[in-house]
Design a protein around this nucleic acid. Structure first.
Length: 482
DNA sequence: TTTTGAGTTGTTCGA
DNA sequence: GTCGAACAACTCAAA
């Protein structure tokens, strides 16, 4: 008889394309799925409030799925290694399988856990279920990590296609006796004051919902993706980011399903939309590649000259930005969408980020921290890449002169003002001509729409024209002397 | 070693 | 209103 093995779930909350689970099945013997919440962990970048909310619900969905296979999820809390050891002792398990995480703190923790387990003659195996390509496998001809996306992605596409996803098992062998388990509620992942109403109405968590969302997207949206993804009022993006972050869907599934659907519906004809979409998955890969090779970039600029950039301390500006009270409708709409739903449209993320970093000259790290706490898809790799890119201090840095104009971005990507009206009820009555820049509206128009600048909606907290010049000036300051 | 081409998402200005 | 050029210079990756 083969002793049980533990399948240690972390950010791979699914049962299909789940190599850790496959490894346990192949190993033989009963399988004990576990989740350990480490409340002793002091490392940087603990899951933020929105991410914890998502995790709570997703653990429930994973448990549901396991129950339907005759299994269940065992929940523990405490130091990882001691919890694993106590489970091993209790269940007589001789093997632990898990899917790799790539955050610097996770790598450190997992390699210690692996070494400790092996030193106790426990089988400890990790596998890749979260990325199309391992960060260390993709390298330049000189054997170095890539720092520019295009050659990185070209090199990825020249490699063998990612493996086909494995279907979920039909049934899981269970132990005679289950070890004790906490309830998910016990982990205290939900907020104590209920600010999560908007999250509840926006999201269905879990692997089944992820699959449904992918199907919806691949039905037709993906073929318009290259254009529609820039319209925040539309549902033109996949909205798969939180599922990807928690591993409720795997990038391999997205990759193969997308290619399959393009073949099916387009008979092999190329689809710019689908290609652009897969490229976005490529950006996620690139973010992990960079985080793996440059772990300090979560706090420090990749381009070192930016460590002397003259960022401003501006507590008031930061709060106005966080609360969606900057007086720039597109910025405020985005920040309120974020606060309400735990998500923000990609185009708007760029606009609000550019505004914080360039118009307010507030350090990108402050923005990254806010996103980290409020996004349900908060992902250390993507968040770091995104903010460094916007600030111009990261890989593929934006040219110094690329400063988003919030008004023209708004007019260009939300021409009808539908997105603005959705999130800014106090501006709903304004004619579209003045909606993107209410401070330019005549008194009479504002009064008729019930808008009282400085009262019902703020005046712009900066003059964008001046702020742009100030940002360009600040950037010129850090240019290499001579 | 040196050279060459290229680099996610923009804005403004002037013709 | 539309269009092309200018906006720094640098670094990366590959030949």
């Amino acid at each position: 008889m083969i002793e049980p093995s533990l399948v240690w779930f972390r950010r791979d909350l699914r049962l299909d394309d789940q190599p850790a689970l496959t490894a346990a099945i192949n190993h033989g013997g009963p399988i004990i799925p576990i989740y350990v919440s480490d409340d002793t962990d002091q490392s940087d970048w603990q899951a933020g409030a929105a991410g914890r909310w998502w995790l709570h619900h997703s653990l429930g969905r994973l448990n549901d799925q396991l129950i339907s296979l005759g299994s269940r999820l065992i929940i523990r809390q405490g130091d990882i290694l001691s919890q694993l050891m106590s489970l091993i002792e209790e269940t007589k398990a001789t093997a632990v399988f898990w899917t790799r995480c790539y955050e610097p703190a996770s790598i450190l923790r997992d390699s210690r856990v692996k070494a400790e387990l092996r030193s106790r003659s426990i089988i400890a195996e990790s596998s890749n279920g979260q990325l199309l390509f391992e960060p260390w496998e993709v390298q330049t001809k000189e054997g170095r990590p890539y720092q520019v996306f295009t050659p990185f992605w070209k090199s990825c596409l020249n490699r063998d296609s990612p493996a086909m996803p494995q279907p979920a098992p039909q049934w899981l062998p269970s132990p005679e006796h289950w070890p004790s388990s906490l309830t998910i509620d016990h982990l205290g992942l939900l907020p104590t004051i209920s600010w999560d109403a908007g999250l509840k109405t926006t999201w269905l968590t879990g692997a089944n919902s992820a699959k449904a969302e992918l199907d919806r997207f691949l039905e037709s949206t993906v073929f318009e993706y290259d254009v529609a993804r820039d319209q925040p009022a539309q549902r033109g993006t996949s909205m798969l980011s939180p599922y990807l972050h928690f591993g409720e869907i795997s990038p391999r599934t997205i990759w193969h399903e997308t290619h399959r659907r393009v073949k099916e519906q387009r008979g092999g004809r190329e689809s710019t939309g689908a290609e652009t979409f897969i490229k976005e998955i490529g950006w996620r890969e690139f973010a992990y590649h960079l985080l793996f090779h440059f772990p300090k970039t979560t706090r420090q600029p990749l381009r070192s000259e930016f460590s002397r950039f003259p960022w401003r301390e501006d507590a008031e500006g930061l709060v106005a930005w966080q609360r969606g009270q900057t007086g720039f409708p597109i910025v405020d709409a985005g920040m309120r969408e974020l606060w309400n739903t735990g998500w923000m449209h990609n185009r708007v993320r760029m606009i609000v980020a550019s505004f914080l970093v360039k118009d307010l000259l507030i350090a990108w790290q402050r923005g990254a921290e806010w996103f980290w706490d409020t996004l349900v898809d908060a992902d250390l790799a993507s968040n770091t890449l995104g903010w460094q890119w916007t600030a111009g201090c990261g890989a593929d840095a934006a040219p110094y002169f690329r400063v988003f104009n919030p008004t023209s971005q708004s007019e260009k990507f939300d021409p009808s003002g539908e997105y603005l009206r959705r999130w800014l009820p106090e501006l709903r009555q304004l004619p579209t001509d003045f909606l993107h820049a209410p401070w330019l509206a005549p008194e009479g128009v504002l009064a008729k729409a019930g808008v009282y600048l400085g009262h019902s909606y703020p005046y712009p907290i900066v003059d964008h024209h001046e702020a742009r010049l100030r940002a360009l000036q600040a950037l010129s300051q850090i240019k290499q002397p001579k």
